[in-house]
Design a protein around this nucleic acid. Structure first.
Lengths: 339, 339
DNA sequence: CTGTTAGCGCTTTCAT
DNA sequence: ATGAAAGCGCTAACAG
């Protein structure tokens, strides 16, 4: 027969005190002045019985569940995005909170369900995370709890945590320039003429704005801008294969690592070498980037830090009614000439 | 001022009934015989007030929280392992449960904390998942809730969900043989002589057992067995580069896709073609596999199904005191000759 | 067929 | 400096 769970009353009884006293001592309330002896007895009793407070009872009473919800469109679809979860988990743990995970597939109906399920559990806050960052959130419910947006934005909730894409974009250009590649730089992933004002996401728009700003401030222009709506390796391969038939670019600025991967394949087949003939910079720090030969120099996303920061903001006192931009880490590998 | 949350008493009052009646009607208890009119009134009242039961109160009373814990060593370290989470999430949702996510880093101390945090919240069950499957779990606590092991095993808890690695191993050999590659097959990732009885994990041991069984039953032997403890692309590259200096294998049986990726690089540099000169089969269905040119034929892990099954077992009535083996899916792409 | 009553385990006034 | 008592929102006995 399973032993009944030990309750606060059991602890108090063993300590020879009231459960009020036990409660105050165990929750560490500062303003109360119980004797040191009482403290010792209660702690000893709790320890010897292996007392663990019942979270449901506590939540019912205090209206605080010490849990938060992480609602996302997709769960760690790409390997690197799982950093968002890991960071959030770590920060939640630091704050003594537990994290409910909810996946919505980006569907409004499931989003409503997820939010309700979370609210039913009295969560102390909700993080809305966008793994595929194009999605927008429309949980059109009253949400009587703090909310922060992670890797995405929302009209309803201003507090959000994002990578500093603009600075990242500028950095990519700086890298190319410092590597001595000024002329013959080709942009892979977007074409300003074909896609006027159309971006895969607000974040990519910022990345491109940073890129264009840096190009302009160096007085440079792209030799070509190649684009395909999807950023898969096969598209990078196609685009670059075709390009190499007529041109000989010096540098490739790839909007993500998968495109860069395809570019590697095309460059290899053309008998050209990296970084000798063509240098590359890219974005994402996808797992791929380190597997390539030579390693791909890329500007990553600070996913883990973003996750942490989102939870800190959520649980903290003061939530800024605006965006928190986190710097994008640079991973220098071998795809750019050193000169 | 935020409106107070609507409670069952509010619903009962509006419906002109007792809260008992409202409770029975809303929880849909079958054995009670309240009038159809009462049902209608209660449902109408609940809907008009937007009533949502308070999970904490319910948990306190019933000792059931409608939540489960997913405790894992690492959260979706590899992209493909996030399928475990997604599957579990989906099945939990189907059962009206919510899922707490806990990460332990494989450290015993954090494992204890995670389990306690989960137990404190009155979870209805715990899944212990192994992302990096070598780890073993030792949460040496009384766990008064159902447990199932996912993608790993434990001496304490027999119920576990695993991929059918033995069958997967056999399948890999069958594929090679059917492609006409019988002689000159090289095993990449393990060397029986150097690593007698030493495996990266119990699961890899089974995979290899399946492979050896199939080889034997076809009367075949490996032309060589190459190994390096880590299964990273760079190791596959090194091993195969060196091999190609002296031998000309016909087929490569790679123990994971990352090794295969490195093999591709070495084969490409040697001016050989896939699958014309060398055919490959591998394991994992890593994201990489579909990016390669030609695509890598690989035997994947049924992660999503495993996650679902684990939750079904956890929440189901009858938990088998043994392993549930799920078939490993075959992804046919272009790395094997069709003959 | 329906309502009253009594807690689940905890925190929190309010008295001592 | 400590304890008695009330009650968070819900459900389960037990009466009517």
């Amino acid at each position: 027969m399973a032993k009944k769970r030990v309750t606060l009353a059991d602890v108090a009884r063993l300590a020879g005190l009231s459960s009020t006293a036990a409660s105050m001592i165990l929750t560490g309330r500062p303003d109360t002045r119980l004797s040191a002896e009482a403290h010792a007895k209660v702690h000893a009793a709790a320890a010897s019985l292996g007392y663990r407070p019942n979270a449901a009872a506590r939540a019912l009473r205090t209206d605080k569940s010490r849990s938060i919800a992480f609602v996302s469109d997709y769960v760690a679809t790409t390997r690197f995005a799982s950093g968002l979860i890991r960071g959030a988990l770590a920060a939640a743990d630091d704050a003594g909170h537990v994290m409910l995970m909810l996946e919505t597939g980006g569907e409004p109906a499931r989003e409503v369900q997820a939010v309700q399920a979370a609210l039913d559990r009295q969560v102390d806050g909700i993080i809305f995370a966008a793994m595929r960052s194009r999605e927008v959130f429309v949980p059109d419910l009253a949400i009587p709890a703090p909310v922060v947006m992670l890797n995405g934005t929302s009209a309803r909730f201003a507090t959000s945590v994002l990578p500093d894409e603009y600075a990242g974009g500028q950095l990519a250009v700086k890298l190319l320039v410092e590597a001595g590649l000024k002329d013959g730089i080709v942009l892979l992933g977007h074409n300003a003429e074909e896609e006027r004002g159309l971006f895969r996401s607000e974040q990519i728009a910022r990345r491109l704005a940073g890129i264009r700003n840096a190009m302009a401030s160096h007085g440079l222009n792209f030799a070509a801008e190649l684009s395909r709506w999807n950023w898969e390796p096969a598209h990078g391969y196609d685009l670059v294969s075709k390009l190499l038939r007529s041109e000989r670019p010096r540098g490739l600025l790839c909007l993500n690592d998968r495109l860069a991967f395809g570019a590697y394949q095309a460059i290899g087949e053309a008998g050209l070498s990296i970084p000798g003939d063509i240098g590359l910079v890219s974005f994402d720090n996808d797992e791929l980037a380190s597997y390539l030969r030579p390693g791909l120099t890329t500007i990553g996303l600070p996913h883990e830090e973003m996750g942490r920061e989102a939870v800190r903001l959520l649980l903290g006192e003061n939530r800024p009614a605006s965006e928190t931009l986190l710097p994008m880490p640079l991973l220098v590998r071998g795809s750019l000439p050193s000169a």
